[in-house]
Design a protein around this nucleic acid. Structure first.
Length: 224
DNA sequence: ACATGATCATCC
DNA sequence: GGATGATCATGT
């Protein structure tokens, strides 16, 4: 078995590819792809995601928007424990701190990214050596009406705070399903934002993340 | 610096 | 133990 060299031409082909690697360990996938396995993830935090991208035929690199633009599909690996509970929150996208006019939930990057997600759960318990962790069965997910409403409410609450110049009041405690946290290589990275008086300020870049309670519910809706 | 891929590590 | 805030690698 080898990684594909082309992008999948249909959602079904993408799903088929994910089934091909279900149950396989990350060590086996790395070996077949002739990739080195890091000793741990401390300095290779994105490694599992990159490995799965390669095996499903996502275009490499750090391009904006979805992983499979032609399919309208976003790929997300998610580390899980033995009960299929997520072990980490899920990064969605950067949070724009300089609001663009006319942006709504319907046109937001968050909604665009989450419109159609291929979830690929991976064994993530730190007690399992990285190479021994197995890929679980992937599945497509589209937010249902209720999930979309929750995400919309959170997004609107947080976006309103940014628009009102209250970005510094935002904490990760806000938001039922979606929240905002720093997202940067280090604490000294700064970007532009506005304060409540409309003045330019410098602040840490932020990202939108899905809480584990939300992704956990999504997983359990599919795996019971 | 921004954006991708995320997990780490500390605090509660 | 779990969530929050911080951080790591890489490419554009």
């Amino acid at each position: 078995m080898q990684p594909p060299e082309t992008a999948p031409s249909s959602p079904q082909e993408l799903l088929d590819r994910s089934y091909q690697i279900a149950g396989v360990t990350l060590g086996e996938l790395a070996a077949m792809a002739q990739l080195a396995i890091p000793a741990n993830l401390q300095r290779h935090k994105g490694w599992p995601g990159m490995l799965i991208e390669k095996w499903l035929g996502a275009t490499a690199g750090s391009k904006p928007q979805q992983d499979f633009p032609e399919l309208g599909v976003e790929l997300k690996t998610i580390p899980i424990d033995q009960q299929f509970n997520p072990l980490e929150t899920t990064y969605v996208c950067y949070a724009p701190l300089l609001s663009k006019p006319g942006i709504t939930w319907q046109t937001s990057n968050v909604r665009n990214k989450l419109q159609q997600v291929l979830w690929v759960p991976l064994e993530g318990d730190r007690s399992i050596p990285l190479a021994d962790r197995r890929v679980a069965t992937a599945f497509f997910w589209q937010p249902n009406e209720q999930e979309d409403a929750i995400l919309q409410r959170d997004w609107e609450e947080l976006t309103e705070m940014i628009v009102l110049g209250d970005v510094e009041k935002i904490t990760a405690r806000l938001g039922q399903a979606l929240h905002i946290r720093p997202k940067a290589a280090s604490g000294n990275v700064l970007t532009d934002a506005m304060n409540a008086d409309g003045e330019r300020i410098r602040t840490r870049p932020r990202g939108f993340y899905l809480r584990t309670s939300f992704t956990g519910a999504v997983l359990h809706r599919h795996f019971g």
